[in-house]
Amino acid sequence: MSKNALIQFVEDQVAIKDFPAFSAGDTITVTYKIIEGTKERLQKFQGVVLQRVGEGPKATFTVRKISNNIGVERIFPVASPFIQEIEVNKKGAVRRARIFYLRSLRGKKARIKEARR
């Protein structure tokens, strides 16, 4: 279904930063701003991209990492003003757009082959 021109007009006004292209299976580092009370600081979240969803200002992506042996997932809106930087560390070779099978894998099995350029 084509999007209404007026919705497109509203969405075009939301500023989306220019990030490098990445997709499911890639290992990325997201630098984002955290506001604690009045203080601001930057935090990094490095992990594997599980999926990218949506388009325009509604688009999000899910990043999964293993922290202290516990799987942690975080969903970031692409248009969020809190995201400072996205760095692609590794291009992963995966066959599907949503790699949820990674959740049930541990240790050596949870590795993803690096894509050949």
Binding site: L6, I7, V14, P57, P77, A79, S80, P81, F82
Partner: peptide, 14 residues
């Protein structure tokens, strides 16, 4: 009604 979408306010809230 045209439809729904989401925007961000000055504080960065969706």
């Amino acid at each position: 009604k045209v439809g729904m979408t989401s925007i961000y306010d000055e504080s960065g809230k969706n």
